[in-house]
Design a protein around this nucleic acid. Structure first.
Lengths: 139, 139
DNA sequence: CGCTTATCTGGAACCATTACAATTAAAAAA
DNA sequence: TTTTTTAATTGTAATGGTTCCAGATAAGCG
């Protein structure tokens, strides 16, 4: 299908741009993140990956995830010191962590926020990125 | 001195309120955090603590820090998945993480921000707290 | 097709934190 | 004050997520 072709092309381009190699493992891990955008941990990705690729190793899953982050295709999400989660949503957004279920949700946040935060910085501080984690309960 | 007395009273009250016991170790660890508000890790607190109390153990430092968090006297600060840091600033603020030096700074943020974030939440989401981490370079 | 070298793999190593069991010491009771 | 109770401290072992390593495999260029 066209959507899947686009995805593959995007992955190929991003990897080529960094001078790295296209591998089945990288493609498979990327597809897992794109198919179910539920902020899985490396271990959860490993479990899903093995279903269609039983020979993949946990080390490779970590390697692939690092590569995807490096290629700006996915982002890491940190909740306290829990296992790192992975998020393929590249638009600027915050994360909501439900204290009851442990789930993580994407929350859009207005453009104005970024500016507001920057305007609050003392001189001499230069911002590269903001991570906003909202803790609470959903439903 | 009066300032130190106030501090001690505050610690005693907070601990008593939770029905816990006042110990030299807890007092010592609390003083370390209050004296130099530079967001130390448990290990850094351990190093400082041993200078005046050579017999204190790392396990105790972790226990004391947990207690202080429990008693709402200090807060944990998380930067990516690095070691947990501890912050005695209880007012609502963000943290700035300098990518060059690794230092963490407190950044005030306007009341309006909290409201703004809450107003952005879809219905069914209830916020307890927000953690804002600004990544960038200072000086 | 062959060659070079990045990537993959399984397992060992690492590091922050937690768990545990024995010892010590708050602080309540006598 | 002394005794008693039991929470807190201590040193060490265990845990869990992640990284490191060395050998095997496979991209992708010529």
């Amino acid at each position: 299908m066209i959507a899947t072709d686009d995805r593959k092309t995007r992955l190929q381009d991003a990897i080529a741009r960094k001078g790295m190699r296209y591998t089945k493992q990288r493609e498979h891990v990327f597809n897992i993140l794109m198919d179910k955008r539920d902020h899985p941990t490396a271990d959860e990705v490993f479990v899903r990956a093995r279903r269609k690729m039983p020979s993949i190793s946990l080390a490779t899953v970590y390697n692939c995830l690092d590569t995807l982050v490096e290629c700006d295709l996915v982002r890491q999400v940190h909740v306290e010191r829990e296992s790192t989660r992975y998020c393929p949503n590249l638009s600027e957004h915050a994360h909501f962590h439900c204290e009851k279920t442990g789930q993580v949700f994407d929350i859009d946040f207005p453009e104005a926020f970024r500016e507001g935060i920057i305007s609050q910085l003392p001189s001499g501080f230069e911002m590269d990125a903001v991570d906003i984690l909202i803790r609470g309960k959903s439903n």
